[in-house]
Amino acid sequence: MKIKVIIVLLLMPFLAAAQASKSTKLFLPEKYDHYLELPYKKVGNWIGVMDLFIPQQSNKSTPLVLFVHGGGWTQGSKGTANQFKMFFNEGFAVATIEYRLAKDAPAPAAVEDVRSALCYLLNESKYHIDPDKVVLMGGSAGGHLALLAGYMQSNKQFDKDCSYQKPIKIAAVIDKFGITDVWEYIHSKSGSRNATWLGDKAEEISFAKLLSPLQYINQTTPPTFIVHGTADPSVNYQQSVNLKKLLDANGVKNQMITIPDGLHGKFTSQQNAEINTAIIKFLKELGI
Rank of each mutant, 00 (worst) to 15 (best):
I54P: 02
Q57C: 15
S77T: 13
H69Y: 07
Q57F: 14
Q83W: 07
S58H: 10
L64D: 00
S61H: 10
P55G: 07
T74Y: 04
V65D: 02
T62C: 03
P55A: 06
F67A: 11
P63H: 06
L64A: 00
N82E: 15
N82M: 12
P55Q: 08
V65I: 14
S61Y: 07
Q56F: 11
S77L: 12
F84S: 01
G71Q: 06
P63D: 06
H69V: 08
T74F: 08
N59R: 09
Q75G: 10
N59A: 06
G70F: 02
S77E: 13
K78Q: 09
L66G: 04
W73I: 02
S77K: 15
N82D: 15
F67W: 12
Q75M: 12
F84C: 03
P63Y: 03
T74Q: 11
F67K: 04
A81Y: 05
F53H: 07
G76Q: 10
G70V: 01
A81E: 02
N82S: 15
Q83E: 14
S61T: 12
A81I: 07
G72L: 03
P63K: 04
Q56L: 13
G71R: 05
G71V: 06
H69F: 12
K60Q: 13
F67D: 10
K60T: 12
N82L: 14
V65N: 01
G76C: 09
W73C: 02
W73Y: 03
T62I: 14
A81T: 11
K78T: 11
A81G: 00
I54A: 07
I54S: 06
V65Q: 02
Q57W: 13
T80E: 14
V65K: 00
P55M: 01
F53V: 05
Q57N: 15
V68I: 15
S58V: 00
I54M: 13
S61P: 13
S77H: 14
L64W: 02
P63W: 05
F84Q: 09
L64K: 02
T80G: 14
S58R: 10
T74N: 11
